[in-house]
Design a protein around this nucleic acid. Structure first.
Lengths: 223, 223
DNA sequence: TGTACATCAGTGAACGCGCGTTCACTGATGTAC
DNA sequence: TGTACATCAGTGAACGCGCGTTCACTGATGTAC
């Protein structure tokens, strides 16, 4: 494809301006991975399909990623970053009430799983990723830190922070995975859009409140 | 099976008494599947490996199971039955206090995941199973019913049963999967056996209590 | 008790597939002079 | 401005693998008579 002046100048930087070199194959492969994961989840992902989707021979990715796990890890790093951003964005709209902030995070967590099920599952498929990847580990730590910090703001006794963070994380995470697995498909009462489990989400997030109230009663005698 | 008197009478029914017909290949394949799943989880399971392990050509399973999903579904049915039995056994030792019974179920749920991680994961890998399998569906329903019934015994308002069952299931299930994924590996305080997350398990199960207490306060004004 | 025969439950070879990875190669780029 | 050359980033063919499934087959079983 010489004389590529009929192509948009640089709106699509991955469109192979010269017909041989790609321009930004690394980014194009990550984008292809994103599309494949979004469409069919982690289980059916293959390196060759990603290369195909990026319009490139299947040997090309080796110049940009060590192996399949390398490409998936690079993509998953961006997923964790999106995940963190989603939680922080929700939290930002929630005002200053600490429990409302926690609910906002939970809503974002579950919403992310629903909106991007393949990406969500990939975040927890350690076997497909390169766990030595420092960028990936850092991005994951950032994600999980959001919830930990928010729980810490709600609990006065430092010894109680970890158990409560684990409880909250477990509940929200378990709910998200069970929703993705279709275990609550007709769980909403009449009047809500069918198939939606948003009602259950709200019940769950509000239902956790007594746990934190009881913490404050236990430690808050002085405050 | 002629003249098989040099074999142990029936202690190992899958030992091929005649060298050609197996005796009980169906059961032997399920046992082989159990071993493979226990050792390496669902991801690496193959039909051929199961046949190999049962000491039989890889075409033989076709006489007993429609396909790979059929064999896995038959095995998973037994897993659900074990899972149900484990929860009921724990519950039976818990006396009559409704919340202690719920804790016992949670302990059994998490304990099962820890003791048989591959089998636990398989129960939730719908993509590998034949979801039209009536026996499998029935066994799964029985498992999930144990928790639902026990929550129902704790909650007076019938409209509250589902949200509370979902909360409990989500928390326990999320914790179990996060534990299996190694997210709480050094979570226990000094003094407990390192690597154990049993302490967190107890914190989590006890931590849920205020949720049910608050339900009773809401509805129990008359009682 | 003996024999013919249908049925069952194995075998082993083959099919077709797609995978990840490696390798020698070559076209394109950009830098040194 | 031109040219030599190292480097980069692709190609396409091949390797070796194991998979699930199908198929014609055959050894063993058990039943009818």
């Amino acid at each position: 494809m010489p004389a590529s002046d009929d192509l948009p100048p640089s709106s699509e930087p991955s469109l192979r301006p010269d017909g041989y070199h790609h321009g930004d194959l690394r980014a194009a492969l990550i984008a292809a991975t994103a599309a494949l994961i979004e469409e069919a989840g982690p289980d059916t992902f293959t390196l060759r399909a990603a290369a195909r989707r990026a319009g490139v021979s299947h040997a090309a990715p080796a110049h940009h990623f060590r192996d399949r796990a390398g490409l998936l890890s690079a993509y998953t790093t961006t997923v964790f970053d999106d995940f963190t951003a989603a939680m922080e964005a929700h939290m930002a709209t929630a005002g200053t009430d600490a429990y409302l902030r926690l609910k906002a995070i939970g809503r974002a967590y579950i919403g992310f799983a629903r909106a991007r099920p393949g990406a969500f599952r990939l975040m927890f498929r350690a076997g497909m990723l390169d766990m030595e990847d420092a960028l990936l580990k850092a991005a994951a730590d950032r994600s999980f830190g959001v919830l930990a910090v928010t729980v810490a703001a709600l609990v006065h006794d430092p010894l109680r922070v970890q158990p409560l963070a684990v409880m909250t994380w477990s509940m929200v995470h378990g709910f998200a995975t069970l929703v993705l697995d279709g275990h609550f498909s007709q769980a909403c009462p009449a009047g809500m859009e069918p198939g939606s489990d948003e009602w259950l989400t709200e019940e769950l997030l509000e239902g956790l409140r007594p746990v934190f109230l009881s913490e404050q009663q236990k430690s808050g005698a002085g405050t």
